[in-house]
Structures are given as structure tokens and as C-alpha cells.
Design a protein around this nucleic acid. Structure first.
Lengths: 350, 350
DNA sequence: CTGAAAGCGCTAACAT
DNA sequence: ATGTTAGCGCTTTCAG
């Protein structure tokens, strides 16, 4: 434990017979201090093993240089990708990240918000939990002028900024693609329809059906929790239908993978009997067989954009309150699992 | 921005005509303050929207209640799992996590260490970058009595604690399993053999070969970066060999998946022509075809164990310096990709 | 270009 | 059971 005494700017000042004010200024590269003293100070600091005390500093300037990352789940590739995008930008800009995950539970999300609030983070990047319906815990931040950027699972709360993909268009494109491949009865496996991402994809799905003059069938929409088991059980449901659907739009690649696997084990051919489109473009998508048509959901980019928006605001380089929504590029990636018609050449490679 | 004035314990004390000392004591549940005043204080704190100032506190008590998580890569399922295990334990114990990732680069790792050092984290949980060979940046911590726990990619540095699986045994078991299945020429696809995890697995591989009286062939060991491309290119190399190996032990499931896919595209049967064992037990392992025999690498558990060891030490509940190594349970999971002999029944389900 | 000094909010002796 | 008070290390006026 033997914590040695820490060197402070007082020690530096004493050793050099100058004032702490000068040391403080030098250490933050204030151009007002002369090259010569500046140099002396830095050399001594290095030599004596000085390290800045962020707490003293923060206590004075009331900035934490920390941003809070609130995530509904830590174990998915998507969250992961977003986190790594956020981490990259935050680190570059000299911000620390403190991560708080709700495990999809509203109560935990509230507790996390309180913790981050008490810790006085400078800003928040957040995706909502599965069952969050009340957003008062974000008002704490807005009330204090702490900016909040939502991504993925968002809700428009008191004018906070939102970073998303166009889930409606993606749902529409996925479904239209299936229709173009000749599908006439298309199942939809998804999650909580109260959450924007899933509603919007669902609306896109319906719009494509409507446009093509296909009937919407209630029982073809299966809402579950996007676990692998959901993929298995929805496949089993479909196996029991007669006639069976001839297409499926599934809002998660892992679910789609489990879905396809189950179908294949039951001698249903994909895409022959049922064409399948997933969502996210996880690495798994091009490794399974048949390779999975899916919608690209660029997590890293989303994280980078969200972090940049927040940090630019914090640094005064822009005003985030002017921005309502940022939409990230995304789109359909066609692979074999959906190709009833034209077995495209060269698709196997990537 | 309009940050409203923050309430301090002075405000609370003034409003109640008591001293700040009493307020401070009450707020930390010091039993010495009377129930009645305690209650008054808490109610007022709630009403006035008081929030503790951690910086002032830390400045006084010189504890940050923060632990640093140094990771070589943020985008893998394994890192992810460990992170979520660490996060769980840390949050429960009231510690914040600040994450720093090296992107496999030594220089970045050093910079991260410096940052965490300056931020005065109470402890460190770390996995080393690909090319780290010098460990002086961890001495900073030991010199100040800040405990460091290494996991996964570890190096024994000045008696720091290490949390690992038995990579040697796992490598041995994987290889012996292939031998038992009748394989006689077993390829090994792995990464940087200077890193403990890969050396140890390699040694296990060799030991199993030796034990079975099989010749070790240098060119059957392929060292690469564990990217998907590594899977493809190693498969291509193998396709060019004559005679072809009849087994492969690959230290990563994604690489193994790409490897198998490439083989299949070239009309090589798995496990018929080549039996394959992966490593990690990523979700992908049981979703591909054939389902992948692999070694379970329980990231969540590893994260939990590492975090618990560190935190118990910080809280004085144990002394981490007494512990050299903690070995986490792991072991072979047999699925179809390696079964040349007995096509076990019921394996397809999970 | 440099110094002196106040104060950020809290805790922990040391009183009472 | 409660109060007084001296810092923790830093930044930032205000004055030279």
C-alpha cells in the first residue's frame, strides 16, 4: 500500500523558487509564461514524477471531462461496435468514458442515470432499456444543461438530439426485396413494438406489403426478445403453419441464424422454401450457410457520430440543441439467403 | 448551458442551523448523528436537489473509487464478455470503470497506462497488447501500491496477480481429441507465439502430438492475426498441401468458421476430410455448419473473478499480493466439426 | 511575465 | 451528539 507522497505544484514551485501560479500556467501551456521557465518546469515535473491532480482541478473548474455511456446491453456486437466508436472519439478528445448498463431494466437505467448525474458527467450518450416508458431521469440532465445524445433506442425527450438509422426505410427495403424475389407471405420476427427501432422497421414492412397489394396477416408478426431461442421458436411456429410463409424479415442476425438453422434441420430450404433477411450485418451473417442477406447497421459510425456531436457541443464548436436528428447511412446487403430468383455470381466471396 | 447553482453541504447546514460536520457525517450514515437530525438532513437534501461532489471528496480522501480496464481490443466477443463481467462486479461494489483500449498497440497501451495513472485509478484490470514486450508502464502502479490484475494476455510482472485459463491443458485436450478421432496430421492456426495464451496452447498441441508419437511438422503451424482473412488464407494454404492435413486446431472460432467455409467451398468435407476444433465458444460456434467443436473460454466469469479479486483487495477483505495465479474453469465442447468417428446423437440441438 | 491569495466542497482531527 | 477549523491541490482574479 505504501503510497509515496505525491508531488504537487507547490513542490515544483518551491524547488524552482517561483510561484505556484506560474507552475500552473506553464503546465497548461499558457503562452504567457516564458519559454525558459516553462522548460524548467516541465523538466522538473518529469524528474520528480509529478502527476496532475484531476480532482483538485475539477473541483475548481467544475468540468469532469467525462462522458457517460448508458447502454441497454453490453453483450451484443452492435453495442460493442458503438462503444468502440464512442471510445475512439472520446479518447482522442481527452474525455473519459464511464459506462453504465441497464441490462434492459428501467429501474437500473434510472439508478445509472442518478449515478452519472452525481458523478457530474459533462454529457451523456444513451440507448434506452427495453421497458423504459418514463423519461424523467433524463430531465435531471437537461435541467442542469448537461447534453444528452440518444442513439439506436431513442425517444424524443425535451429536444435532445437523436442519432439513428432510417429504420422505416430499412424495413421497407428488406421487405420489398423479399417481395421482388417472389415472396407473397412474409413473416416478421421482431421485438418490443413500443421501441422506435422495431416500430419503424415494422411500419416499413407494412408499407412494402401495402404497396405490393399483399395482405397483412397479424399472426405472421412474431414479437419476442431477440434471443437465439426466439429464432428457434419462431421457426417452429412457422413450421406449424399451413401454408407456410415463403419469406421472413427478422430484425436480428443471430435470431435469423438460429431461425435458418432450425428450418434446415426440418428440411425446409432457405431460400428455396423461405427467403430470409436479417438485420445488423453481424460477422456471423456471411459465415453461415446460406450467407445471410441483411441490413447494415454501422455501430462504429453511429458511436463516432454521437460522440463527435456531443463533444463538439461541449467544446463550444457547435450547438447540439440545434440538431434534432442525425441519420446514419445504412442499407440492404444482399447475400444468398434471400435469393429465390437470380443466383448472383460471385456472392460467395464476401 | 445555464448551470444552476449547485447545493453544497454548507447550504444544507445553513438552512438547518447546524454545522457542516454534522451534515457530512449524516450523509455517510455515521451512526453517531441522531436519527432525528439525520432524517431532517436527508429530507432537505432530497428537496433541495443536493448531489455529493465526488471531486471534493476525492481530493480529501484520495480514493477515486475507479478502476481502470485496459483491453487490447474492444470488438471481440471475448473482450466484451470480460468487460461485462467486470462491469457487473464493479458496479455492485460502487466502483466506476474507465476503459482504455490499446488497439493492440504497445505505444497506445503505454499512453493509456499513463492516463489511468494520472487519473489515479484505485486499481487496474489489464490484458496486454499484441506486441507489448516491455512492462515498465505497469511499474508505475506497483510503485504507488496500486494493484494490477492481468487476465487473458498476461505476463508475470513484479508479482502482479494473473487470471487465466489453463491454455496448455486446453491446447492439449483439443489436440488429443483430434488424435482420438483418428487425425494424424494436425494443422495449428494461431497468433503471436510470444503471447502466453498462444504459446501455451501451442505447447499443449505439441505435447499431445508427442504423446501420440506423431511427428511435429513446422509448416503445419500457421501464425497469423486471427482475422477472418487469416481463416481464409490458412485454409487456402492447406488446400495446396499434399497430402492435406486431416485435422486442424484453430485458436479462434471466427477464424475457424471462415476456415471451414473456405474448405467447404473447395469441396473439402468437414469433419470427413479435415476435423476442426476452434477456441472460445463464441455464439457462432453452434450456428455454423457443421457445428463447431471448440474450447469454452468463459469471459464473463473471468471478468467477474478478476474484478472481485481486485475489489476485495481494495476493500481490505483480502490481500491480492498473496495470490499469484487464478485459473478459471474451461474445457472442450465437442460438436460435429471434429467427429470423424462417432456421429453422436442429439448434438445438433445445442 | 510573474506572484499572492482566495476559494472550489468536503472530511477528519480536535474540541465541546 | 454536534461544532470549528485546517487543509486536500488546483485555478484564477487582481496586482504588480
Amino acid at each position: 500500500m505504501s503510497k509515496k507522497k505525491e508531488i504537487t505544484i507547490y513542490d515544483l514551485a518551491d524547488s524552482l523558487n517561483i510561484s505556484v501560479a506560474t507552475v500552473s500556467r506553464a503546465l497548461k501551456d499558457d503562452p504567457v509564461v516564458s519559454k525558459k521557465t516553462r522548460k524548467k518546469i516541465f523538466e522538473l515535473a518529469e524528474k520528480m514524477g509529478y502527476r496532475a491532480n484531476h480532482f483538485a482541478r475539477n473541483l475548481r473548474v467544475r468540468e469532469t471531462n467525462t462522458i457517460g455511456f448508458m447502454i441497454h446491453e453490453l453483450k451484443s456486437n452492435f453495442s460493442n461496435a458503438v462503444l468502440s466508436g464512442v471510445e475512439k472519439i472520446a479518447t482522442e478528445a481527452g474525455y473519459d468514458l464511464i459506462i453504465a448498463h441497464s441490462a434492459e431494466r428501467y429501474e437500473k437505467e434510472v439508478a445509472n442515470a442518478r449515478n452519472l448525474f452525481n458523478k457530474r458527467v459533462d454529457g451523456i450518450i444513451a440507448s434506452l432499456a427495453f421497458d423504459t416508458r418514463n423519461y424523467d431521469h433524463f430531465k435531471w440532465f437537461s435541467d442542469k444543461g448537461v447534453p444528452v445524445v440518444f442513439f439506436d433506442r431513442v425517444e424524443r425527450v425535451r429536444g435532445n438530439t437523436v442519432v439513428v438509422i432510417d429504420n422505416y426505410r430499412c424495413g421497407y427495403e428488406a421487405t420489398r426485396h423479399l417481395i421482388e424475389q417472389g415472396c407473397r407471405r412474409i413473416a416478421h420476427v421482431t421485438s418490443n413494438l413500443a421501441r422506435n427501432v422495431y416500430t419503424d422497421r415494422f411500419k416499413g414492412y407494412r408499407a412494402a406489403l401495402d404497396e405490393a397489394g399483399l395482405a397483412f396477416e397479424d399472426h405472421l408478426v412474431m414479437v419476442d426478445n431477440l434471443s437465439e431461442n426466439a429464432g428457434i421458436s419462431s421457426a417452429e411456429k412457422i413450421l406449424g403453419m399451413q401454408p407456410m410463409p415463403d419469406g421472413a424479415f427478422i430484425t436480428n442476425d443471430f435470431v435469423a441464424a438460429a431461425f435458418i438453422k432450425t428450418l434446415k434441420e426440418n428440411q425446409v430450404a432457405v431460400p428455396g422454401d423461405i427467403a430470409v433477411v436479417g438485420f445488423n450485418n453481424d460477422a456471423i451473417a456471411h459465415l453461415i450457410e446460406p450467407s445471410l442477406t441483411t441490413v447494415n447497421y454501422p455501430g462504429i459510425e453511429m458511436g463516432e457520430v454521437a460522440a463527435r456531436a456531443l463533444i463538439n457541443h461541449l467544446k463550444g464548436a457547435s450547438d447540439i440543441r440545434q440538431i434534432d436528428t442525425v441519420i446514419i447511412n445504412s442499407g440492404l446487403i444482399v447475400r444468398r439467403s434471400s435469393l429465390k430468383k437470380k443466383p448472383l455470381i460471385g456472392l460467395g466471396k464476401k
